[in-house]
């Protein structure tokens, strides 16, 4: 009995020293191959790049497409990423970029490409017109950055919003097995970045905490389908004007969280209005209730 136990221990011992040796060798091999002499790719294909570099490359493809409108080249270039469905990849990237950076030039280029890839028609660009000097009526809100623009909208699916714009191309999705892709339905072109023109504190007990936005062109006509990027420290959301066309085609609203401070940007590279938060309104009897904002934007 005792001899059997000793034999077993000896067998286990022999296995353990072999295992120990193998692990030591494995660790040495990994240290050497990953740290001391890592494999260096010098002729990388785009799909091997880091995520950031891939994004940069893809955005460049989209921007080049906006310049030359050669869909064949886009297909050929995107094929280097070995993705199964370019539209899905494009849409995913657009969502990521919009969430991280806002609906900026890069996102617009991707949106533009995605729109065309689904067979959409390009908007007729508005002729540049003389724009009055933006009148900054904001005193409490901080307005920053301005840049150039051309806007194209992608609707946001929002089941809570009544009278949502119906997609004209929903049936044109490439494959029912593919993830649903939001379809661009409203395209608007404006000649200048949107600026904050008017700001009012809203005190309506029936609609507390409501951020109301009105977007008009430089002639004062309401603009439908203009993307509005709302961002706050922990997230962002894009919504669009025109969800209540019976009321005003250039109108959009958002129910603010009383604990958040928002930043809003209307259209691509429009002025950024910072520091938006729920207001405090006072009743006649001195008690308070949450109020909202009315913001009017024009190029």
């Amino acid at each position: 009995m005792i001899r059997e136990e000793r034999t077993t221990q000896r067998t286990q011992g022999s296995s353990l020293y072999l295992l120990t040796g193998a692990i030591i060798g494995l660790v040495m091999g990994l240290i050497f191959s990953l740290a001391i002499a890592p494999l260096r790719y010098k002729d990388a294909t785009p799909d091997l790049l880091t995520a950031d570099a891939q994004t940069q490359y893809k955005v460049l493809i989209a921007q080049a497409y906006a310049a030359e409108h050669d869909m064949g080249r886009v297909q050929a270039r995107w094929a280097a990423f070995n993705v199964q469905n370019i539209q899905v990849d494009l849409h995913t990237l657009l969502g990521q970029l919009s969430a991280e950076e806002g609906y900026n030039a890069n996102a617009v280029a991707l949106d533009y490409l995605l729109y065309d890839m689904r067979g959409g028609e390009r908007p007729t660009e508005a002729e540049p017109t003389a724009t009055p000097e933006p009148e900054d009526t904001s005193q409490e809100l901080e307005v920053t950055e301005v840049a150039q623009v051309e806007t194209e909208a992608t609707p946001v699916e929002n089941a809570a919003e009544p009278e949502a714009t119906v997609s004209e191309e929903e049936s044109a999705l490439p494959d029912e097995t593919q993830p649903p892709i939001p379809t661009s339905t409203v395209v608007a072109a404006v000649s200048k970045p949107f600026q904050l023109q008017e700001r009012l504190v809203l005190c309506e007990e029936q609609a507390p905490r409501l951020l109301q936005v009105q977007v008009r062109d430089d002639e004062g006509n309401p603009l439908q389908g203009i993307p509005i990027l709302l961002s706050w420290p922990s997230g962002s959301e894009v919504f669009y004007t025109g969800l209540f066309p019976a009321f005003d085609e250039g109108y959009a609203d958002y129910d603010m969280d009383p604990n958040e401070t928002y930043r809003i940007q209307v259209g691509f590279s429009g002025a950024i209005v910072d520091g938006i938060r729920v207001n405090s309104c006072e009743r006649e009897d001195g008690t308070t209730y949450p109020g909202g904002w009315w913001l009017a934007f024009q190029p």
Partner: peptide
């Protein structure tokens, strides 16, 4: 055998480092 085990582990580590994890 201990050295052989180290060698085998080393080879495996190199293969992993230069292929799968590269």
């Amino acid at each position: 055998w201990f050295l052989v085990a180290i060698g085998a582990g080393l080879v495996l580590g190199l293969i992993l480092g230069w292929s799968m994890f590269a």
